[in-house]
Computed example of a mutant assay.
Amino acid sequence: MMIAQNVQQWFESSLGQYLIEHEHRYFDQVVANIFGYNAVQIGWPQFDFLRLNRMPLRFSVGSECETSVRAEAGFLPIQTSSMDLVILPHALEFNANPHQILREVHRILIPEGHLVVSGFNPFSLWGVCHHLKSMREEFPWNGDFIALSRLKDWLKLLDFEMAGGRLCCYVPPFKQEKWRRRFAFMEAAGDRWWPISGGVYFLHAIKHTHGMRIIKPDWRNCLDAKRKMVPIARRIIKAAKEKQSSGNSNRIDDLNKS
């Protein structure tokens, strides 16, 4: 209970609000243009990152009380190939088995379904706080930050194709807003001058399923062709026998004359 309370207090802080503002900005832009019937959010259910999506069914899954369906992210009670969109706001770095979560996401997504992931970048000023011993016990620095390149490799192994993404939160994670304002120039120039050092990354991927079409022989046509060949073969054999018998009779007549 104390851990959940500390997490909620962090989100209510100035730095937490700064992060959520950027998260909403990206998710709102991406999910609004993804169409289908079913969408699910796994992680951080207290924030509705599907609010601008127009699918008929939108719900959240997690172990928190705010979720629509309470379940472990690695074992989803969702039918296979039934979801058009899955979003994972920081669900991977705060779970002991992120590979299992991705396998479950791949299972429940339909072919050509969409996955949108957000995560903390370990190679950033935010990642520095993750490596400081004095902050490793605090949220969100207690998570297991996953490098963007590693996440891309995991998704490629599951036959996901990268469709887009970006980085944000280039400003150092100062708790005081006044210090973040002083370094606001880093946010404006981040995408141009140091694009890989954003504190948070977003990744949009699409599930591809390699289909296989079995080529079967057309047995009916083959049998029909064989049936058509039988009379022809019989006529050829009959003609050969008649020719052979006429040849033998001619030889006998020649012998009798001689």
Rank of each mutant, 00 (worst) to 15 (best):
Gly16His: 02
Gly16Lys: 06
Gln17Ser: 03
Gln17Met: 04
Gln17Asn: 02
Tyr18Ile: 00
Leu19Thr: 00
Ile20Cys: 05
Ile20Arg: 01
Glu21Tyr: 04
His22Glu: 01
Glu23Pro: 00
Glu23Trp: 00
His24Ser: 10
His24Thr: 03
Arg25Met: 12
Arg25Lys: 15
Tyr26Ile: 12
Phe27Asn: 09
Asp28Thr: 11
Asp28Cys: 11
Gln29Asn: 13
Val30Lys: 06
Val30Met: 11
Val30Gln: 09
Val31Gln: 09
Ala32Cys: 09
Ala32Phe: 08
Asn33Pro: 05
Ile34Phe: 06
Tyr37Gly: 10
Asn38His: 11
Val40Met: 05
Val40Gln: 00
Gln41Pro: 07
Gly43Asp: 00
Gly43Met: 05
Trp44Asn: 02
Trp44Gly: 00
Pro45Trp: 00
Pro45Thr: 07
Pro45Glu: 04
Pro45Asp: 04
Gln46Trp: 00
Gln46Asp: 06
Leu50Lys: 04
Asn53Asp: 05
Met55Val: 04
Met55Gly: 08
Leu57Lys: 12
Leu57Gly: 08
Leu57Gln: 11
Arg58Gly: 11
Phe59Met: 08
Ser60Asn: 04
Val61Glu: 00
Val61Trp: 00
Gly62Leu: 06
Gly62Lys: 05
Gly62Ile: 01
Ser63Pro: 07
Arg70Glu: 02
Arg70Ile: 02
Glu72Tyr: 06
Glu72Asp: 09
Phe75Met: 11
Leu76Cys: 05
Ile78Phe: 03
Thr80Trp: 03
Ser81Glu: 14
Ser82Cys: 08
Met83Glu: 06
Leu85Tyr: 08
Leu85Arg: 11
Leu85Gly: 08
Val86Leu: 04
Pro89Gln: 02
His90Thr: 01
Leu92Thr: 07
Leu92Asn: 02
Leu92Lys: 11
Leu92Phe: 11
Glu93His: 09
Asn95Gln: 12
Ala96Arg: 14
Asn97Met: 15
Asn97Tyr: 12
Asn97Leu: 14
Pro98Met: 01
His99Thr: 11
Ile101Lys: 05
Ile101Tyr: 10
Leu102Asp: 12
Arg103Asn: 14
Arg103Phe: 13
Arg103Pro: 12
Glu104Met: 09
His106Met: 14
His106Gly: 14
Arg107Phe: 09
Ile108Tyr: 06
Pro111Phe: 08
Glu112Lys: 15
His114Leu: 15
Leu115Asn: 01
Val116Ser: 10
Val117Ser: 07
Ser118Phe: 01
Asn121Trp: 02
Pro122Met: 13
Phe123Lys: 10
Phe123Tyr: 09
Phe123Pro: 00
Ser124Gln: 05
Leu125Cys: 10
Gly127Asp: 02
Cys129Ala: 06
His130Tyr: 12
His131Ala: 07
His131Arg: 13
Lys133Asn: 05
Lys133Met: 07
Glu137Ile: 09
Glu137Asn: 13
Glu137Lys: 15
Glu138Gln: 15
Glu138Asn: 14
